[in-house]
Design a protein around this nucleic acid. Sequence first.
DNA 1: TCAAAATATAACATTTTATAACAACAGTAT
DNA 2: ATACTGTTGTTATAAAATGTTATATTTTGA
Lengths: 181, 181
Amino acid sequence: MIQEEGHVKIRDLSEKFEVSEMTIHRDLKLLMEQGLVKKIFGGVQLQEVSNKIQQKQCTYCHKPISNEGKLTYQLILSANRIERTCCAHCGILRHKQLGEVVLQALCHDFMTNTTISATTAWFVMDTSLQMGCCEPQVLTFGNKDHAEKFVKGFEGTVLRFEEAAERVTEAMQASCCSKQK
Amino acid sequence: MIQEEGHVKIRDLSEKFEVSEMTIHRDLKLLMEQGLVKKIFGGVQLQEVSNKIQQKQCTYCHKPISNEGKLTYQLILSANRIERTCCAHCGILRHKQLGEVVLQALCHDFMTNTTISATTAWFVMDTSLQMGCCEPQVLTFGNKDHAEKFVKGFEGTVLRFEEAAERVTEAMQASCCSKQK
DNA sequence: TCAAAATATAACATTTTATAACAACAGTAT
DNA sequence: ATACTGTTGTTATAAAATGTTATATTTTGA
């Protein structure tokens, strides 16, 4: 409903789902904390378009994003929203978190800095070259050949989007005391 | 209303939105503080805007935009907003994303650097000349003849705006694992 | 220049919406 | 069965928005 209208009243949601307004408030709070919607007095609306306020922080880890930002990852969402993360590590996690709201994802070829689509990119993990952004590190490449040549020199594994996503998620959920969630 | 007329009376706004004039005054005060409108005795008018804030980053992929910016694409939006992308690739995607908000779109002829309208420009894709900005690359030409001569030497396909938009969107939404959404 | 009319502002009252604290309830593990 | 957990609804209270009235300011026209 919010997606379609751009703005909905708490009362409408309450009637629609046949629950109290209190419940709606509570549920919206979660969406708000995820940064998906914005509560205004009397309703909810989609989070502001970020075209003026240049995002200077990673949406996921909140680290400042450097200006050249070769490592950054951009998420193009519905309703003209754009999010930006410091690197593919945070980008992939946020991407998975948002799910279908993500219309497109952009990243940059590590060698040429060409902007490419993340879903078709090649991801390199476990390499010896440490960029020092996030752990586990994920580098992005526009073509397989480059990624493989890179790995030849700097070691690591070449992965597709889904594989990389799985690896990162797994690594982040691992617990210190080996008992998985 | 203010946008369209350039000048509106408080009373009209009050009747239009079915609230008291006091509320209109209060709400306009906020717009005024944001510098969007100017209150005059008996009404509001649009505030003149200075587009001094030159964007130095691509609105879409956030890559820094070089100063000569031969490849850049400009979107002229309502309410005197201007957005700038690094190249036609991002420009077209952002253009489609914003939809009707875009009043005009500018780009440059690849050979002469002449500023031209994007909607009437000729777009060249799949050429052998790699500028290294974004993938899939899109070059812009002011006239069909030039585009075709370019293609004769450097290969590629000459497209109109809509065709190019479709091609780029498709490429960006493609998934790595061949199962389309 | 001045008074009358029109419009704006300030202060307060009223209404609407949000939040916090608590109680009721269902499901789950012990 | 019992204690625990998490969700929901209810109530009271707080916060925000809106409307009303009285007063100030600006404009208009003689």
